[in-house]
Nucleic acid binder design. Structure first.
Length: 550
RNA sequence: GCGCCAGUAGCUCAACGGAUAGAGCGUUGGCCUCCGGAGCCAAAGGCUGUGGGUUCGAUUCCCACCUGGCGUACCA
């Protein structure tokens, strides 16, 4: 049952009895106080009414209480606290019901239909196929994946998309870079492009091609060879990206190729639409978009004076394509180097005829890798890039995902490799998984001693504070999920799960589960099982494993 | 210059506008005859960068400033 709705309804009734009608009931907050002495649920309603009623909050709270009718098995005590809070202490009748509900709902506990099936698309990572994935991509992958999980759990219809920039100048540069390295392996000197890609992986790709196909490409014209090698290299990079995402547990619903978009002349449709709305003009031989009228700081070029569509124009066409596919809300996760790009893209979405709120950009802030307490310096030009591959190979998928989710996505993240790979008490991932493994062990131990979990067992033996605190926290799970989804704040989940694990460990140390007291054992096994359900459901959203033993 | 992000315990970070600002790590001291000690308990540690404002109430919202990171293309 939802105790917050129950209390809100009762308070509303009380207010009506007091003759208070014109009041924003949505502003009434029912929340869990931070401090135990303040009860299990608390409301600020009396404080909100001070200006309207011109009385002290305490006086108002007293009047509300006089007209409040509550079920005494659910709410054991109600108090008024100093500024004017009304604090509710919940009863065991309520707590037992919570455990029952969790056992009954099992994997569905935490799910809701709050989102009403609205179709979301989240586009993330979308790294250029001209090089290996870096650490920011790893963060974006974890965040995007968890966001989609969260949105789906609360009843949206969300899907994952990876955009492959497989067209344009950078792909030509890729072909030229590989071609130059390839040729030098056969003793030919082909100039390396000025803005080419210098990483070791370019030589590796060239070497692989040389081993596989020999010198067959040396006879081609430079143009033909570069074109061919570019296609081979591209396919290979995309394949590598797909493989690593799969290992990382991120399964995109769609890998969208820019080249397909270009083939369909989608840019022309955008230009035609913008022309019809008088949103473009020509100047200095280029075609400009009047985005300064739509919130951007200046107008931007859509077609260069060379007649080439800009990346921006193609990107507009891509976002139009997303809407055309029926998505109602788009979320893009971008790197910090693209935040200046947000206003123009928002302008474009509006120009396409969609409401501004239908398009969100979340900037995934940068990641500092730390090793031995020192920031690992990364320089793209020098080819010193820590690859996503190295990180997940070194620290493992569970730890990597957990650490990337563990921060607000708008915050810079210090990723300490030593901590992430440590298998000690320093590592919060193990703290959570240890709680889960311990639960599995207790259930196993009980079975071995002839006591099977009975989900219909009498729960009245539960009476300790440690039990009640744990149940109270378990009960917050659906609310945390909703909050995390609504605010696009995946980091709330690790925080919450750490609390659950801590309360469980505390309970474990204070309350012997499997004992000679059969009735108490059965009741506590139900609580242990309920905790297991919450941890498992939380792990599933974060995408980390739930080990039965460690 | 303009824009974005951040500034909270020694360190890494939390805190839908709420009450005495919380965790983890690190430090100090306790707890295994007992379902897993990868655990538990306790102590110490703070003028929430600075100054104003809005509010019954501000770490949170607004303005100004300081510090750090990033961005500011007819590149992608």
């Amino acid at each position: 049952m939802n105790i917050e709705l129950y209390l809100k309804e009762k308070i509303t009734q009380s207010l009506q009895r007091l003759g208070i009608e014109s009041f924003g009931y949505d502003d009434i907050k029912i929340e869990r106080p931070k401090i135990e002495a303040h009860g299990d649920q608390s409301t600020n309603v009396a404080m909100l009414l001070t200006r309207l009623l011109k009385k002290s909050p305490q006086r108002i709270a007293e009047e509300i209480l006089e007209h409040l009718e509550l079920d005494s098995s659910l709410v054991s005590r109600v108090e008024i606290a100093v500024p004017g809070f009304i604090n509710f202490h919940l009863g065991w009748g309520y707590y037992r019901q919570v455990v029952r509900d969790i056992l009954l709902e099992d994997k569905k506990f935490g799910r809701s239909d709050w989102g009403g099936g609205v179709r979301y698309q989240i586009e993330f990572v979308s790294a250029n196929p001209t090089g290996p994935l870096n650490v920011v991509s790893a963060r974006a992958a974890a965040v995007g994946d968890v966001l989609v999980n969260l949105l789906n759990v609360v009843g949206f219809d969300a899907s994952r998309e990876f955009y492959i920039n497989d067209a344009g100048r950078q792909i030509r540069l890729l072909g030229q870079s590989v071609s130059s390295r390839y040729m030098s392996m056969f003793g030919f000197d082909e100039s390396f492009p000025e803005e080419g890609y210098h990483g070791d992986y370019i030589s590796e790709i060239a070497g692989d091609i040389a081993r596989r196909d020999g010198d067959v490409y040396t006879n081609m014209s430079a143009e033909e060879r570069q074109e061919t090698l570019s296609r081979i290299s591209l396919d290979r990079m995309v394949q590598l990206h797909q493989q690593i995402m799969s290992e990382y547990g991120v399964h995109f619903d769609n890998w969208f190729r820019e080249s397909e978009l270009r083939k369909s002349n989608a840019q022309e449709d955008v230009l035609a639409l913008f022309r019809s709305k008088d949103l473009v003009y020509e100047q200095d031989g280029a075609l400009w978009f009047r985005c300064s009228q739509l919130g951007d700081e200046k107008d931007r070029v859509l077609v260069t004076s060379e007649g080439e569509p800009t990346y921006f124009l193609v990107d507009i066409a891509y976002h139009k394509n997303k809407f055309d596919r029926g998505f109602e809300k788009l979320i893009d996760l971008w790197g910090p180097d693209h935040h200046g790009y947000v206003p123009r893209m928002k302008a474009a979405v509006v120009a396409l005829g969609h409401p501004e709120e239908s398009f969100y950009v979340e900037i995934i802030q940068q990641v500092n890798l730390l090793r031995g307490g020192e920031v690992v310096k990364m320089s793209k030009r020098a080819g010193q890039i820590i690859e996503m591959r190295e990180v997940i190979d070194e620290v493992g998928v569970d730890a990597a995902r957990f650490f990337f989710i563990n921060r607000k996505i708008s915050s810079h993240l210090d990723f300490d490799i030593d901590v992430a790979k440590s298998q000690t008490e320093e590592n919060p991932v193990y703290y959570l998984q240890y709680a889960y493994a311990r639960i599995c062990n207790i259930l196993k131990y009980a079975r071995e001693n002839g006591i099977d979990l009975d989900e219909k067992a009498d729960l009245s033996p539960l009476s300790r504070d440690e039990e009640r605190n744990l149940i109270h926290e378990l009960n917050a799970f659906p609310d945390i999920i909703t909050q995390a989804a609504r605010g696009l704040d995946p980091h709330l989940l690790p925080i919450y799960l750490k609390n659950v694990a801590a309360l469980f460990h505390h309970f474990y140390h204070e309350c012997r589960v499997v004992s000679d007291d059969k009735a108490l054992t059965l009741a506590r096994l139900c609580l242990v099982r309920a905790t297991q359900i919450v941890l498992a459901n939380g792990f599933a959203i974060i995408g980390i494993s739930a080990p039965e033993s460690m």
